[in-house]
């Protein structure tokens, strides 16, 4: 079958020379999110230097980030559990690019960290530091490095990063 395909590929010079016209707009949206009962309490915990999860009494599962309901059984019989500020690396990456595809000098080290005290396989997204990327391994034990108490803002960045211990 012969295909006559449309679609005109542009090159940078087509736009720069204004041979092809472009109009522009910059969005200026600004939001304020109410953190709710679950994440609100989680963030308050971070400010106090503590990581809190929730335990579903029906499913016998401790999760983090915490929620006031269990998405599996859709019940609200959950209790709050203080977790450790230690965990193990579930997976990690050594990332050399920013969101705009520009390159970074020192790689970012994002990881999913399974938090001690939560059910197996339950972790959070965070970043690693104070480690040679070459030495990173899945299963490695890591601990949170916190901001000083007076610098904390009830934000996930109250934990600066995680480091092997």
């Amino acid at each position: 079958m012969r295909m006559n395909l449309e679609g005109t590929s542009l090159k940078r010079e087509d736009i720069d020379s204004k041979r092809v016209l472009t109009t522009r707009f910059r969005s200026n949206a600004f939001y304020a999110w109410d953190t709710g009962r679950g994440i609100g309490r989680y963030l308050q915990g971070l400010k106090a230097g503590e990581i809190w999860g929730t335990h579903c009494d029906t499913c016998n599962r401790t999760v983090v980030p915490p929620r006031i309901f269990c998405e599996r059984c859709m019940k609200n019989q959950v209790s709050w559990v203080k977790l450790q500020d230690t965990g193990i690396i579930n997976t990690f990456s050594i990332c050399y690019v920013n969101w705009d595809a520009s390159r970074v000098e020192e790689p970012h080290l994002p990881a999913v960290i399974e938090i001690d005290g939560a059910s197996q396989g339950h972790g959070i997204l965070h970043v690693l530091d104070e480690v040679n990327p070459k030495d990173l391994k899945i299963g490695m034990k890591v601990k949170a490095v916190w901001k000083r108490p007076e610098e904390r803002n009830a934000d996930i960045t109250d934990i600066l990063y995680w480091k092997p211990y």
Binding site: I94, C95, W99, V127, T157
Partner: peptide, 17 residues
């Protein structure tokens, strides 16, 4: 929006992870 974006993730992260 509350627990991940402040870490400044990019899309490649989740695929690499």
């Amino acid at each position: 929006n509350m627990t991940e974006r402040p870490l400044k993730p990019n899309l490649l992260w989740i695929f690499a992870l």
